[in-house]
Design a protein around this nucleic acid. Sequence first.
DNA 1: TATTGTTATACTCTATAACTATA
DNA 2: TATAGTTATAGAGTATAACAATA
Lengths: 154, 154
Amino acid sequence: MPRFDPSELQSGSSDLEELIGYNLKRAYVVVQNDYRDVLGEDHLAPRMFSALSLTMQYENLTQSDLARMLGIERSGLVAIVDDLEARGFLARTSVPGDRRVQALVPTENGRGFYDDMIAKVRAHEAELFSEMTRNEIETLMQLLKKIRRGEKRK
Amino acid sequence: MPRFDPSELQSGSSDLEELIGYNLKRAYVVVQNDYRDVLGEDHLAPRMFSALSLTMQYENLTQSDLARMLGIERSGLVAIVDDLEARGFLARTSVPGDRRVQALVPTENGRGFYDDMIAKVRAHEAELFSEMTRNEIETLMQLLKKIRRGEKRK
DNA sequence: TATTGTTATACTCTATAACTATA
DNA sequence: TATAGTTATAGAGTATAACAATA
């Protein structure tokens, strides 16, 4: 059994380094930390950003729609929407024909804020991945989406 | 602005789907959920497995070593090691020459348990990624490690 | 002064279960 | 019966700050 040598940590010499799941997690943490540095200034958590993004791009989403799209439970979305609504980025609006649902409608203010944020996030990714070629990034995205498509539904 | 169409969710047509960080997270969640299905039977959380794996493969790791390798704080490791020690998988043993540190030494029992677990995890990954070619997996691993190497140190 | 292990504490993210009002 | 939104609650996972012992 070898003594610990830091230089071999990512060389794939240990069981852990050969696992896809572990590498996926560690890579995700790298990006997440950078996200927080960027979004944190504006007090926007990554999940807030994700929810805001989808409401900007799809008309009259309900909270249940959003939860399904983000892969989280409906109950978890209440606080997120509360926050986004409190900051004036979107509004819960009643929908004619089904009084159970409330569509999430972005405000002008919300659109302006979002446009700033998406620009910041894109700039941050461009810088964080500046060592990777366009081809590598393209390949990575395809492989990640392939993993996502293999998700086992409940 | 388009109406929500579930079929286009992963097609890259929205801002979110074009972000590396978002795809990384979603892919990670897919694997994580599968991990939990597999490791959960034996009440072994993913981070317990990671810590156990490293102590099996590196001689006389200290908790500080482990924390650095896993990218978490020292304080977070106390509970992990407590649990692994309570289950008889490893032991904190004093080290001659430095009375501050306690080396983490695997037990026979721990080795047997770990051998079972790593086999289960590998089988689970083989099945979860059965739609991907060996080449695709190799490429993915290289790209993930490249992202990890780009991590900004504190 | 710096490091190791530790405790206390708090925060984020998320899930489960139950409720209500609608359908 | 089923669904939308909601609340309460609990459990991971993690970080920060402080401390005693030791280097």
